[in-house]
């Protein structure tokens, strides 16, 4: 199997190896939660494929299952059934440590609440993923510095997160997500805690990263304006995909008429 262990030294090689195939490949993915009230189904057999350099927005009302989907995509949670291949790795058969390694190596996370470590400097925050991939101290600092420069915050490298604005914190979070050169950037309501002006700045940054650097981006949002930055839109409703197509047509209409035939047959 591919997944038993991903060699530490071959990060680049492992990432490039299947770069031509889909980054995300989901077939008939289901997720159920078991609570005292019984089994609650959240995702009902989803099929999604995301190719390298795509920019996908996942929209849906709260309770539609979009956060659950995001957690599964990010290897933070596992599906009840169905398959999920991340860059060709079947995550269902991987152990905790390998999943941690995949998160470190292939995925960059951007959260709604920024999730920076409050007591660490911006530089240390950005360098944190490199600590877990055993990069030397000098290289950590150099790469974190470079990433901070890319998001325009190089001069605040020694500040702490609570000394800068929310938009700046989100930029730091993006720098942290990108510092390990991931295949896939997952953003969960990245503009949710920001005003519209700052939100637009962040979205422009995403757009630039996607268009210039070719980074695959999957972002969750409930705002049509935010989703419009993406090229492709996936709409979720009650655990079903109700739209999968161009963001320009889908984002405008709350009741999309266009259903993907494949989605329809499996849901």
């Amino acid at each position: 199997m591919i997944g038993d262990s991903v060699p530490q030294g071959d990060n680049e090689a492992a990432a490039r190896e299947v770069a031509s195939g889909p980054v995300i490949h989901i077939r008939n993915l289901r997720k159920e939660y078991t609570s005292v009230a019984g089994v609650i189904p959240v995702l009902h057999g989803l099929n999604i494929e995301v190719m390298p350099s795509e920019f996908v927005a996942i929209m849906g009302a709260s309770g539609s299952g979009k956060s659950t989907l995001m957690n599964i995509l990010g290897c933070l949670d596992i599906a009840t059934s169905g398959s999920y291949l991340l860059n060709g790795h079947d995550v269902a058969v991987l152990d905790r440590d390998t999943l941690a390694h995949l998160r470190n190596d292939l995925i960059g996370f951007v959260f709604q609440g920024f999730n920076l470590l409050p007591r660490a400097s911006l530089l240390d925050n950005v360098a944190l993923p490199l600590v877990y991939s055993k990069v030397s101290r000098e290289e950590r600092e150099a790469r974190a510095n470079e990433m901070l420069g890319k998001v325009g915050l190089a001069k605040y490298r020694d500040s702490q997160p609570n000394q800068i604005s929310g938009g700046q914190q989100q930029r730091v979070a993006i720098a942290r997500a990108l510092v390990n050169r991931p295949q896939l950037l997952l953003a969960d309501e990245p503009t949710g805690n920001l005003d519209s002006h700052t939100g637009n700045e962040i979205m422009n940054l995403f757009k630039e990263l996607n268009e210039r650097d070719g980074i695959t981006i999957v972002l969750i949002t409930h705002e049509v304006e935010v989703a419009a930055y993406a090229h492709r839109l996936v709409r979720l409703a009650d655990g079903h995909i109700v739209y999968d197509g161009s963001s320009h047509e889908g984002a405008m209409s709350k009741n999309p008429t266009e259903y993907s035939a494949a989605v329809h047959s499996t849901s």
């Binding site: 941690a100 190596d105 999730n115 877990y132």
Partner: peptide, 16 residues
């Protein structure tokens, strides 16, 4: 706990 979650999300293994 939340900090632990963040660390795990960005690649910390259990042993880290």
């Amino acid at each position: 706990t939340r900090e632990i979650g963040i660390r795990m999300a960005i690649g910390a293994r259990s042993r880290d």
